[in-house]
Amino acid sequence: MDVNLLFKIAGIGIVVAVLHQILSKAGREDQAMMTTLAGMVIVLTIVIKEISELFETVRTVFDL
C-alpha cells in the first residue's frame, strides 16, 4: 500500500508495451500476444490484492 506499487504497475505496462512492439516488429506475433497477456495477469494480481485489502479495511472500519 505504497506509491512504489504504482511505479511497479507503470513499469510493467511500459515494458510490456515495448516488448510487444519489438516482438511484433520481429515477426513473432504470437509471442507478442503471450507477453502482453502475461503482463496483464501480473498487473491484475497486484491490483486485485490491493482492492481486496481495501475492501477488508472498509469492512472492518464500518463493521459492515
Binding site: 500500500m1 504504482l6 507503470a10 505496462g13 510490456v16 491490483v47 490491493e50
Partner: peptide, 15 residues
C-alpha cells in the same frame, strides 16, 4: 493498463 493504475491509485488514496 491505465485502468489498473487508476484502480490502484484510488485504492491507495482511499486507504
Amino acid at each position: 493498463y491505465a485502468i489498473f493504475a487508476v484502480l490502484t491509485g484510488g485504492a491507495i488514496i482511499l486507504y
